[in-house]
Design a protein around this nucleic acid. Sequence first.
DNA 1: CTGTTAGCGCGTTCAC
DNA 2: GTGAACGCGCTAACAG
Lengths: 335, 335
Amino acid sequence: MITIYDIAEKAGVSAMTVSRVINNTGRISEETRKRVRKVMEELHYIPNALARSLVSQKTHLISLLITDITNPFYTTLARGAEDAAKKAGYRLLFANSDEDYAKEKDYVDMILSTRVDGVLFAPAGDHSHDNLLQLQKHQIPFVVLDREIPGIDADVVLGDSKEGARNLVEHLIALGHQRIALVNGTQDVSTARLRYLGYNEAHRLNGLALDDSLVIHRGYRDFHDDSALDGLLQLDDPPTAIFAANNMLAVGVIQSLRHRGLQVPGDMSVVCFDDFGPAGAINPFLTVAAQPAYQFGQLGMQLLIERIEGESSDASRRVMLPSELIVRSSTQPPS
Amino acid sequence: MITIYDIAEKAGVSAMTVSRVINNTGRISEETRKRVRKVMEELHYIPNALARSLVSQKTHLISLLITDITNPFYTTLARGAEDAAKKAGYRLLFANSDEDYAKEKDYVDMILSTRVDGVLFAPAGDHSHDNLLQLQKHQIPFVVLDREIPGIDADVVLGDSKEGARNLVEHLIALGHQRIALVNGTQDVSTARLRYLGYNEAHRLNGLALDDSLVIHRGYRDFHDDSALDGLLQLDDPPTAIFAANNMLAVGVIQSLRHRGLQVPGDMSVVCFDDFGPAGAINPFLTVAAQPAYQFGQLGMQLLIERIEGESSDASRRVMLPSELIVRSSTQPPS
DNA sequence: CTGTTAGCGCGTTCAC
DNA sequence: GTGAACGCGCTAACAG
């Protein structure tokens, strides 16, 4: 590996002068500057970011901790984050928690020892509290994405889950559905709670009774649980429509229905939160509340970088992004 | 920030002893070991990976350079890479080149200065040659993914593009199609060349004439180019089926057809390479040659880590993964 | 079993 | 304008 000392020697100057040339700092005569530059090129010199970081206490590394890159929502979010990071000269360290608190903790430990400059954190749920606290304790700036964590005061970028859910359910009600099931996430996740509230509100505002037997809970990633629907379908008065609280749950719901020989929307209307990225464009099918995933990442990254570079006030900021109801062909009036 | 010296002082030992305790190296009395451990916990000590890397010349960082995380193929590949990396104690630095050689070069420079231990490299195309060479020159181990680069001798994980393409086209021929268009990637990409060869071979083996006016080229990401299809559709003898060389091109093709009021498969059959991840499960529609994307990442990462840790021979390895023809509803006999 | 010395590659501080 | 000395946090090599 070639260092500033190699350059210095060959250029007949001190290492310090080389360092100054690299960083454009201090006063250097044009002559020596050129000479140093030339040697640097001849030797294919590349600054060692490690050594530099050790001195400057800045790594220009940001950790993106999400639950699953395979979910199109997070895929697009990640892309927004990366673009914003690149623009500001940061690189992205990337990790999937799989909605698993223990795995999340593992990554937080890694993050801490890696000395990243900040963390873009899409938490698994309320119990991420301790992991977030860990970051705070070590003064690592972070921005929380998608899910609000009680007891954590930080910049946060959220979707309007309640409003989005209400829109989705009201769309179903407008079509004439009265028995609408909710396949929700677990209650330790703020978005699941809010989507439930939106579901409730839609019922209340439209004079529909609530029936808890129509509501079931699954982890946002547990879409393979094929038996989950049995309870709903075997009710005396089964639902005519299902609201899946996120896109992965919708995949599971639709596959389960298909296995049982039920048609969407013929036998059952289905809607969900979150769209499906470019793939969704192929055969627009599912009626969804689409969130601006790219903006989640981009905006979150901007807030984070402002924090890191100390350009923001102390007060924590809270951004709420709207979702858009996109009506497609997975919904129709009940038969 | 608290360091081994802080620990050492409070525990009444030297920094070296602390270091030994941390790394479980050398002989330490159980007594002092416990004392040091206790102080480390009290002070919430976290080793500084930066300093450690500067000494050891190992960062435990691997760079994943792909063209676009938004493409479901790379999404799943990334997930496979991450899982394999985590298992071996490496973290992932992640970058999108957007099939753009200049952007790719930017990232290679970043990679070089970051001193990653290795690179998992899905190149933009043949001209990535120079970027790869740059890595070689600096002795950074890498594994090439998905696209073979002429003149670069390295471990590589490929899909069987020719075979997959042949299967797809033969499926169309079996349905009775005789005029089959190919919307291909640009010719500086090995997969595009091979998919063209497979397309050719299918024609030859089935006694069908080739017609170059049925073949057009687009960048794998240029699926927004709505006018691309005009030439094909305005032929005297237009195609009855289209083979899109990857999933993103298929999205563009189908959207273009839709804008023109053409139905798939009613007016035009469509097939493509690469599936659509979990989203594709919702409403299985497109007939595809599905590649084992997760394995691309997982296997590639394994090969890379073997290289990094010096467990592999000098000869470079070449893994070819088969694709699977999945017939769905985007194809039917010509009308 | 434990400590001292030196150095990884670079930038800050001060002196000239 | 330029350089010497020191330190960032840690570990390898050697000493005791």
